[in-house]
Design a protein around this nucleic acid. Structure first.
Lengths: 348, 348
DNA sequence: GTGAAAGCGCTAACAT
DNA sequence: ATGTTAGCGCTTTCAC
């Protein structure tokens, strides 16, 4: 059967298309008209065409979430949070993977095609071109990450510095004094800010000594290798491994295990991101929650707020980190998540 | 600045809008016209409006992926695979979370609004209403899961029966004879089919004895509790715990650990889904890969194929499972993933 | 090869 | 309260 349009409904109800439209959209119309139109629409199984509606109204009721690597647990968490906000607001969510920096700029430029009413963007790197493209965008873009101070864009960011401070302070409080920081590439946003945060944190306490190593990737395998080197080379010299993310932290945990070192008795290990992996490992991996879900939620809310009020001033929201202490960094036992009543994620 | 339309481009180039459109879309046009129009478009920063184009063309260049629980690792994997196919095909991907069964039916019905050209659907439950809604849909729907045999819909499914057979056969080959199956709710698709598969597999070997327990959820916490009960109640009676998914399997691993049982020496443990958790746990959790990514990829390909050829016969593709053997089920050591060169996922 | 004009389905003036 | 009509921006006959 051919698609049923509002013309069909109007005919069936014996009214004009204008009346049909008004009745359907709850505008001025007599009770009788509303009744007839509703009945006709129901009988015909009418549903207003989204495209035609968009063209007429000048908005798509769609929002985009653009991210380099969908599948990365941190971004997945953000996406889930964004999706919840978007779904509750009668918008649809379009997912775009951005690839490299050039592709990201290209994507932001393509916003001129008007396929969405706004975008939440998690850029890999913030280049001048990207900042310019965002400023030129005909639809609002909310950025998850760092933007130049003079960029008048809504921005949500994590507080990596405070996060690293939480980790270091915790370790120091637990009596650790000789820390090794295992970082990923420092030309990435997380690599740079976590390093700066770590340095600042350790420098504030003269009793703490530290070393830094940089690995090629934020992965378990890289974390494992780096930890092996560190622990073999300086057995007994270190009492804590501070990983720049949970994957590196898990690798470090495995390395200690393989070298016959007990965690946390012989060496403490910590991560960043507080992913499911940190909760599930044994011992549980102490980790800083940088608030990925919360950042996603806030970004989506900022986008909706701007859509509702285009001229409001730009907001920059910083989400506070929270330390999740688990067995990998403290001597005394901590209840294991699996034994508590806390619900964990289901799988199908 | 106001949005620039094709009319502006045409004026600037000194041609009609028809010529501008043809030039831009690579249809018949003189080299000179193409040249002038391209220049004008570039100068003005013109990008064709997606909505207007959709309305005229009758297609949105958008595809939807609908799933109950985004954030579930298995679905995330599928989504990633789908996204890759979709992005490579000049379509956009819209993500819809379906919620419960009624909401799923509602979503499929809303396809009549024409906001996407097709959908990949991972239904929680396949009700008669849902089957009917899919059949009535004006745009193609590819189903990830089971459909009635007479439903002429493109379908992609996992082979749970074969998967459970792989697990059981492996355990038997390793000398295990007393198996406990820890399953999630049996009114779910995975619960039902994994149970049936387990039963079939164990029944084929009279030397194997088995018990089944059903927990409320496919979670670590539930798996932990069930394993504690099983192992405490019948210490020494069991030599393998077969979990219906990795989360339950991880819970079982932790339970054995907390009871002072060695894995795999005292008890073997296996999972299903082959998630990252299985790769990362210690010992590594032997798991059946039901091919989530591959199923997603195939589903997206089927959708594109149907879009290209609407009248082709319906396809049903079954993706073969693969057993990933790790330390949790075999006595001899298996190289740990972290020590190999296999790249693991990065986090930001 | 090019231009004029119709029309995709809808909503919102505008007139009645 | 209702009907007529313009028009959102684009592509595509159709006539030249």
């Amino acid at each position: 059967m051919a698609r049923v349009t509002i013309i069909d409904v109007a005919k069936r109800a014996g009214v004009s298309v204008a009346s049909a439209s008004r009745a359907l959209n709850g505008l001025v119309a007599s009770a009788e008209t509303v009744q007839k139109v509703r009945a006709a629409a129901a009988e015909l199984g009418y549903a207003a065409d989204a495209t035609a509606r968009s063209l007429k109204l000048g908005r798509t009721q769609q929002l985009a979430y653009a991210v380099a690597d969908i599948g990365n647990p941190v971004y997945v968490e953000m996406m889930g949070a964004i999706e919840r906000v978007v779904a509750a607001s009668d918008y649809r969510l379009v997912i775009s993977s951005t690839g490299d920096a050039d592709a990201t700029v290209e994507l932001v430029r393509s916003l001129g095609r008007g396929f969405v009413d706004g975008m939440v963007l998690s850029p890999l790197r913030v280049t001048d071109e990207l900042v310019a493209a965002i400023a030129d965008s005909p639809v609002p873009v909310v950025v998850l990450g760092r933007m130049p101070d003079d960029a008048a864009a809504d921005t949500v960011r994590a507080d990596s510095a405070r996060g690293m401070e939480l980790v270091v302070d915790h370790l120091v409080r637990e009596g650790r004094r000789r820390l090794a920081f295992i970082n990923g590439p420092v030309d990435t946003t997380p690599g740079r800010f976590r390093r700066d945060g770590f340095r600042k944190a350790v420098s504030s306490d003269p009793s703490v000594s530290s070393v830094e190593v940089v690995v090629d990737d934020f992965t378990i395998a890289e974390g494992y290798r780096a930890a092996i080197r560190l622990l073999e080379g300086s057995a007994g010299d270190l009492d804590a491994l501070v990983a720049a993310n949970d994957l590196i932290g898990i690798g470090a945990l495995h390395a200690a295990d393989d070298l016959g070192l007990r965690v946390p008795e012989d060496i403490a290990v910590t991560g960043v991101d507080d992913t499911e992996l940190a909760q599930v490992s044994r011992p549980g991996l102490t980790s800083v929650d940088l608030g990925a879900a919360e950042r996603g939620r806030v970004a989506a809310e900022l986008l909706l707020a701007r859509l509702a009020e285009p001229d409001r001033p730009a907001h920059t929201v910083t989400v506070a980190p929270a330390l999740r202490v688990r067995g990998s960094s403290i001597a005394r036992a901590v209840p294991h998540p699996a034994t508590s009543a806390a619900p964990e994620e289901a799988s199908a």
